[in-house]
Design a protein around this nucleic acid. Structure first.
Length: 584
RNA sequence: GCGGCUGUAGCUCAGUUGGAUAGAGUGACUGGCUACGAACCAGUAGGUCGGGGGUUCGAGUCCCUCCAGCCGUACCA
């Protein structure tokens, strides 16, 4: 059975139209053999039917007749017997409008029932392995609102892709090497020495991390190891500080994310790439392929050349490419250390080559957008087709507000609101739904005062309320009438005829299509909007149609409809990591 | 300068390969519970889709151009 009834109906309209055209052509009423790409749309206004095709308008030129004439001929040669449709009519400039009939509506309830909690699954991703890397926050401090957003985004994208049949791997990349960690160590070390020698005696690094968590790490270090580390060499001490800090922070991050209902398949350490020589090997590979050169003591990647090839390949004209200010990148600094960029190339080579993922999807903050094409181009240079196999979801940042005023958010100033602070104030459900509400491309404002106060105004409760209402309804029917939810086969779906009932059936039928779109666009916020729409359809149905009625057949049909909605709500909420409560 | 994102109702935002009279939530106003959960529903009001050109049967959607806001343009990550 095809679960995707929206797609099935759409295809049927296209097929019906095409065959009607062929019949009309055979009868000599229209020129034969024209290739016409008529679109099949779902009209906004239900007065225009459930599906509409613009075939007649699109074909007007090729067929040498007015759209309305063509539409009339198509109607004359169309047979709806045995199809999903009851009715068809011509409208407006030449649209053909189709109205769904009983065959289709009967199948909806059966499809939802058969699908159960995986209703909407498909096999479009069968056999394809995808890694979704997300959050990957620096382990130098607590996670903030941007990570909260990226967390739901990545997790929900992964869930959607799983449902679409992909084999999905969730990964957190731990930046436990490089400059940030060095600064991290310097910061803890300075606080440590301040504890012993006094605040004034030790200058805190200008670009160090100011947060209270750093002082705490220093206190913990001192409590555990005493003052003796003061006598060790600076290098030795800082190495110890870095390790100590990471060891303290990583479990906290894991715990915070677990609390936020995110579980990773792997926490991948950047340091392993350096320690195993994989970064050096990757850079050497680029050198062998002729993509590097030395200058000013550093080793450079010819990013400008790689990008130029990439852009030309993608269809930009040489003039357009010339206009861009392409620059090269340093891979190995004059001091011998590899840059973050070099490690990142190695990391993604590891994903695509060593571990063999077909596609690597990364959730990045939009402030890293300048890095996207450079990394893809570098992977192209390694022959790994990064331009197609590395997909970056650029997520616009979260603006932190307090009483409506913007607050600068950075780990350095320590002014960020941490993820765990958020979860102390609002439920995981509210937070996840809120951060999954906007498309990745739009920036969101987040005001903690508002988030806490408007807790009950979060649309998540509108959706959850619909679910709880249905649970209560089903329980009531069982309790007072001794009747449980019937199987789809025992239900006469043609009894569902009010506009509210039909709207609800159409909405639950749409779910597989919504999933497909969310997957294609890598935008799980579409699920939020779908769930709000479904909950709205249900509340309207509930207010206008009584389920507990004397007619047993109608009661069974409505009960089944309500329970089907419940299943789809639970299904969708699960996908975005929000609970579907039976009571609230 | 160059590049990315954004600009739609008072506010927050939808608008799916171009389709018919541009939608929803929220705020404002008016109604609806002795009936399966009122955390709900119904109704009213609110628009030069940032401006201007172009493409075509048809543009919020595609192309060009201009304007405004945010972000990026490191031997940082």
């Amino acid at each position: 059975m095809c679960e995707n009834l929206i797609l099935a109906a759409r295809e049927q309209v296209a097929a019906l139209t095409q065959s009607a055209y062929e019949k009309a052509a055979q009868a000599g009423l229209l020129p034969a053999g024209a290739q016409i790409r008529g679109q099949v749309d779902i009209p906004k206004d239900t007065a225009h039917g459930d599906y509409a095709t613009s075939f007649a308008m699109a074909g007007a030129k090729a067929l040498g007749k007015s759209p309305r004439e063509i539409a009339q001929l198509l109607m004359d040669h169309m047979v709806l017997e045995g199809t999903y449709f009851d009715k068809m009519e011509m409208a407006g400039p030449g649209f053909l409008n189709f109205t769904l009939g009983k065959h289709w509506f009967s199948e909806v309830l059966a499809a939802v029932e058969a699908g159960g909690l995986t209703y909407g699954k498909s096999c479009e991703g069968k056999g394809k392995r995808v890694m979704v890397e997300f959050v990957s926050a620096n382990p130098t401090g607590p996670m903030h609102m941007g990570n909260a957003r990226g967390g739901v985004l990545g997790d929900a994208v992964a869930s959607v892709l799983e449902r679409l049949g992909y084999e999905v791997w969730r990964e957190f990349y731990v930046n436990d090497a490089g400059n940030q960690i060095h600064k991290f160590a310097l910061s803890i070390d300075a606080r440590y020495r301040q504890l012993i020698l006094g605040e004034e005696a030790v200058e805190f690094p200008a670009d160090g991390y100011q947060g209270e968590d750093i002082r705490e790490l220093a206190r913990d270090f001192r409590a555990q190891f005493g003052d003796s580390w003061l006598e060790k060499s600076e290098e030795e001490r800082q190495e110890a500080m870095a390790q100590f800090g990471l060891k303290a922070n990583l479990p906290k991050m894991k715990e915070d994310l677990r609390r936020y209902k995110i579980e990773y398949d792997e926490w991948f350490l950047e340091s392993t790439l350096h320690d195993s020589g994989y970064v050096a090997e990757t850079v050497n590979l680029l050198t062998e392929k002729g993509w590097t050169y030395e200058a000013e003591g550093a080793l450079w990647l010819r990013t400008s050349g790689l990008l130029r090839e990439k852009y030309l390949r993608e269809g930009k004209t040489p003039e357009q490419v010339d206009k861009l200010e392409l620059k090269d990148d340093v891979l190995r600094r004059a001091n011998g250390f590899y840059t973050y960029f070099a490690a990142d190339i190695a990391y993604h080579r590891n994903k695509l080559e060593k571990r063999g993922f077909d596609t690597a999807i990364n959730v990045w903050g939009a402030d890293h957008h300048g890095h996207v094409h450079r990394l893809q181009a570098a992977l192209d240079g390694l022959g790994l087709d990064g331009s197609n196999r590395l997909v970056i979801i650029l997520m616009q940042l979260v603006n932190l507000l307090q009483d409506g005023q913007p607050v600068r958010m950075s780990k350095r100033s320590g002014k960020a609101i941490a993820l765990h602070d958020l979860l102390d104030e609002v439920s995981v459900d509210a937070a996840r739904f809120f951060f999954n509400a906007s498309k990745p491309t739009v920036a969101v404002d987040f005001d903690l005062d508002l988030a806490v106060r408007e807790d009950s105004e979060n649309p998540v409760y509108y959706v959850q309320y619909a679910h709880a209402r249905i649970c209560s309804l089903v329980a009531k029917v069982v309790e007072t009438k001794g009747i449980s939810v019937p199987a789809a086969a025992e239900v006469d779906a043609t009894l569902l005829q009010t506009p509210e009932e039909l709207a609800l059936l159409k909405t639950i039928a749409r779910f597989p299509e919504e999933l497909k779109l969310a997957g294609r666009e890598l935008d799980p916020s579409q699920i939020n909007r779908y769930l709000v729409a479904l909950a709205g359809d249900f509340h309207r149905f509930y207010n206008s149609c009584r389920c507990m009625v004397d007619d047993p057949a109608l009661q069974a049909a409505r009960l089944k409809l309500a329970d089907s909605v419940r299943g789809v709500l639970e299904n969708g909420l699960n996908l975005i990591g929000v609970t579907a409560p039976e009571k609230m």
